[in-house]
Structures are given as C-alpha cells and as structure tokens.
Design a protein around this nucleic acid. Structure first.
Lengths: 335, 335
DNA sequence: CTGAAAGCGCTTACAG
DNA sequence: CTGAAAGCGCTTACAG
C-alpha cells in the first residue's frame, strides 16, 4: 500500500498552507468559498482520506466508545441486546463516533480481564450494556473513563444509567386492564428475584392503589426462585380475571398453565406480559405486552455520553425511557 | 477529569528520559532490570495508563479492526453471526487489537453509507461478516484498507476470505450415510439459490460419484425459490432412504413434512442437516448435522489480518475451515 | 545501558 | 481571508 495523501500534500499541490486545507475541509467560515471548493476538488482528485489519528492525539479524544457486555446475554434465544446495540451504535455513528463492541466471556468477567480499548485509552467513554458482576464494574470504573450503564442500574455506584421505565409501564398496562373492567388482577413474578421485577410489581400495585383495589396476596404468584431459576407456576384456587406478568416468558408459561387447566385465554382470563420478546408472538394467543423503546434508549445514551465527553462529567442520574403497550389477543375487556 | 499522567511525567519524577520510560514499559532488553522495576512501580503509583493515541499517529496504525455486517443477518432467530463475531473479536483482542462493530441497516447498505471508522482511517483492516451487496462491497474496497470476507466469498473480487468448507462437510456427512448402508439418498435445497447451497450439493454429489451411486433427479428437491424465499417442500412419489438437507431449517421442515405424511424419522427415513442451528435441537427428533468451527474461523481471520497488516498485503485466497459432524437422532443405519 | 532529536497528521490560538 | 508556530504522546534510529 503506497503512502496515503495528507493535508500537507494537498497544501503543497495548491500552494497554500495546511492550516488552510484543514479549515477548508471542515468548512470553516475562515475560508473563502472559492478556495474551499478548490481544496475539496483537489482532495478528491488526489484520493485524500481524512486521517483521524492526528486529531485523536491533538484533542486526546478518539471519538470511539467502548460497549461492554456480558456473554451471558447472548445465548441461543437472546437477541434483545443485539437489537439494542444496533440502535446504540447507529446513534453514536450519527454523532461522528465509532463503537467498539466487547462481549466479555464468563472467564474474563471472572478474572476481571478488561478490553484492550480500555487499557490503552482507545475510547472516550464506556457503555456497560446489561448488568455485570460488581467486581467487574468496579474494575471498569477504575479507569476513570466516562461510563453509562445501559438497561440496568446499580445503587452501589453513582453512575448515570439509561433504563426502561418498568414502574410506569406496568402501571399503565394495569390501568388499561382496570379501564377494561377488570378489578380482580393478579401479578406473576418473584418480587425478590430482581430489581426490575420489583419495579414492575410496584407499578402494578400503584394502579391498584389509585383505583382503591385491595391487593390480594393469593394472586401474587412466583414464576422463579430467588436465584432466578424458573419454577412451576401454581395457580390459586380462585382465579382473578386478569394476570399482569413480569415478562413475556412468564406470561407464556402462565397461559400454557391456564390452558392445560382448561381455561380459555382471553375468554376466561386475560394475561399481559412485558418485553415484546419472541415468546409474545410465539404464544397462542399472542400476548399483549410492553415494548421497550430501544431506539430512544440508544439515542439518549449516545446523547448523554456526547455531553459528558464534550462538556465534562455532568451528572444525569437515572434516565427512564417510556415503553409502549402493544395490544394483541391475550387480554380483552371484561364483559 | 484531571489531566492524565504521561510517560513524560514518569520520566520527570524519576529523573530519566521518556525514551527510557517507554522502553522500560514495553520490557525492552535495552533497559536494566532494576530500572524497569522502578519505572513500572512509579507508573503504577502515579496511576499511569498507556495512551495508544501517540503510537497510532507514530505508526499510522490504530490496532483496530472494523467488522461490517448487514442488518439482515440479525433477525429474531439469528444468532449465528453474533457467535462468530464473539470469537472473531476475542481472537483480535488476543493479538492486541480492538474491534469496532457496525451492523449496516438496509438503508445504509442501499445508499452505500459507510461507517465513520472507515471514512476517517480509524481502522487498519476490515472484516465483512456475511455477504453484502456488490455495490456496498465495492464501496468498502475503495478505501484500500486490507479486507477479508468472512463466511462468504465473491469471485468478482480478488479478496481473501475465510469460509466453512461446505463441499467437504456434505461430502463427509453423505459418506457417513453411505457407510451406514444408505444407497438411495436425496438432497433438499435449491441449488440455484446460493453459492453455498451449490457447494453443499456438490459435496453430496461427489460422495455419490465415489461410491458409484447414480444421481436421481427426482430426489433433488427444492426448499426455496431462486430468491431465497422458502417454499413448500414437495415429497417425491418414491422416497429415498435418506435426505441430505442443505441447512437445519430445511431439515426441520423436511422432517415435519415427512411426519405429517405418516413417515417416521429416522425409522423409515434418515434426515441430516447443516449448521447446528437452533432448528437442529428444537426438532423432534434432533437433527444430525454439521457444526461450523466458529472458533477456528475467528482465529484464522484474525491471524491472516494480522499478517496482512504487519507484513504487507500478502494473498491468502480462499481459506476453508473444516466443519464437524454432530451425531443426533435424525439419522440411523439402514437395517 | 541511556537519551536527544525528529516526526507521525492534525488543530488551535494567535499574528498579520 | 491566510498562515507560521506549537504541540498532542508516543517510538524509532542513532549517537554516546
């Protein structure tokens, strides 16, 4: 590969200084229109390609962002974080940034082994996509590189995060059921398993409170043990008229359970889920659920990172992104 | 964020030159052991983090590789390329490289819009992961950046590629069936749809030829139209005793078709697939198939790229990676 | 074994 | 509107 053309080469060819070339190429008001056009034309003719390495050193910015994510989120039927990555990366591209993507193996997460990009200051910021071990997060934060948690939060660290508004979404979807005439509404999910299940439960509970509906403990049903392993769902003796499930997989399993007990969904009982995952559409009937607004999550994360890098470490705290209710067949008004 | 410590700071603290610091930190034989240890200790104390930006400019290398892949490979039940990316990225990390990952939207592929990393010489090489449009590939190659095609090839361009040995794998799996006593063996797949189906067909055909088994045209069955849209599989009047399918999804659909026609797999007829995808294990019976060696594909791609960058543009041509037969229940010896 | 000099390709602040 | 100077953090080639 022969040597690349630089601004200096263009400058020499045109008999101007490289400062002028630099300004012309970035469309600075300093330069006359005529000269700008000449510079751009010559650059094209000479096959010039801008070399960011000069700027990187000068500004001590690479305009690259590291996205770090645990291998455990990329199993056989997990596509959620790939979708989110896609949106995130697109948003950064629009702001002129490149994203490096590291899927951290179990081994590396265990041994606190961190990507080269972080070790060598090749990135201006880090997005941790999905919860990782506390120790690993600590290790990343030690590099003092602007960091955002995406799709999770962690009260132990005072780090900005962008997450779905779990609370508000179940509040809304429960309200929808109430407006449809339901007053006997259960919740399926172990509220001690994860913080996001807890938030989803609390949104459901708030909707009940606002409508002065008593919480019935028999209708709060576990879908998993405290270690997040799914367990058999036990239906209560007397059923409510609707179930709010903490996720689509649980909604799917609940529907299967109800069907095998001889109930019809949604004719006998309505069921709603959360996530709009594959389970929601594979289920029969298809599941009314909450779709996470990934595009907005990506956009906001990129925007906040951009501001942190450009304007110094402002603090944004928890940024909540609203989900959207997707109406399908698994829930219907109480007749 | 306060200013970062540089080699100069360490040098001043120790009263040596920054050349010495640089050499000590990269463990050069030029420096005495005692001094090395002192430098490393001081660097740690001062919170020094190596800054690759200096080296990037100096060497005109970023030690970053761009991975470019079309959005169409990241649909709801596609995880294949994520797995491959993971291995690829790991292999590059081991060589000291960072990988940027761009999933190109349909729009961007159409409008030939290319990632920032390529526009600004932020990467030393490009891996195109999975076939993209000819025009898009052309646009990428125009940047004159060392490029490797991963998991596809394209005779129009004289570009190195790393691919699964489709031909050899179906040759082997067909031979396995023949050794099990099968002599009436069909092939399911449209041999005009893609080049890899063609290669898989030819491997199957070679196994027949070697064993002097006549090719029966009635047993070459289409699974899709020429535009890659799946179509209903039409079973022939007289069935062979085994089917070699061009992929697991097709094997899955073939098995479903056979079952609904009243046949038992593998008792009445054996079926084998290719890819070891989700379909292979979701199917009942589970499918005997060929597993692509992703780890090796990633490793070889990284190694070849490394050599191209370090030793100049050697030519490697088509690098074939052997797959591995995974034996499951969908095929059995002819009694 | 140690270090002074030069330079990678840009941009910014300043002078004209 | 144009340009000379300085410098970002490293590394290499060379001198001692």
């Amino acid at each position: 590969m022969n040597k690349r053309v630089t601004m200096k080469d263009i400058a020499e060819r045109l008999g101007v200084s490289k400062v002028t070339v630099s300004k012309a190429l970035k469309d600075s008001p300093d330069i006359s229109q005529a000269l700008k056009e000449k510079v751009i034309k010559t650059a094209q003719e000479m096959g010039y390609i801008y070399n960011a390495k000069g700027r990187m050193l000068r500004e001590n910015l690479t305009y690259s962002i590291g996205v770090i994510s645990s291998e455990k989120y990329y199993g056989k039927d997990d596509y959620f974080y790939i979708d989110l990555y896609k949106h995130l990366s697109n948003s950064f591209e629009k702001l002129g940034f490149t994203t490096t993507f590291n899927i951290i193996s179990r081994n590396d997460e265990e041994s606190l082994s961190v990507p080269n990009a972080l070790l060598e200051q090749k990135i201006d910021g880090v997005v941790i996509l999905g919860q990782m071990s506390i120790d690993y997060i600590k290790r990343v934060l030690d590099f003092n590189c602007p960091t955002i948690f995406l799709d999770f939060y962690c009260d132990r660290f005072n780090v900005d995060c962008v997450i779905t508004d779990n609370f508000f979404a179940t509040y809304e979807i429960t309200n929808m059921l109430i407006e449809q005439g339901h007053r006997e509404i259960g919740f399926v999910g172990n509220i001690h398993a994860t913080s996001s299940i807890q938030d989803r439960f609390l949104g459901y509970y708030k909707a009940l409170l606002e409508n002065r509906i008593e919480l019935n403990k028999d209708w709060i049903i576990k879908d998993r043990d405290d270690n997040n392993n799914f367990i058999d769902i036990l239906l209560p003796g007397k059923l409510p008229t609707a179930f709010v499930c903490n996720c689509d997989k649980t909604a799917y399993l609940t529907i299967e359970k109800l069907k095998s007990a001889g109930y019809k969904v949604p004719d006998d009982i309505s069921v709603v889920g959360f996530d709009d995952s594959l389970h929601a559409v594979l289920s029969s009937p298809k599941i009314t659920t909450v779709r996470v607004n990934m595009e907005e999550m990506g956009r906001r994360t990129a925007k906040i990172m951009f501001e942190k890098i450009k304007q110094g470490e402002k603090h944004y705290g928890k940024v909540l992104i609203k989900g959207k209710i997707i109406v399908r067949e698994s829930a219907k008004p109480l007749k």
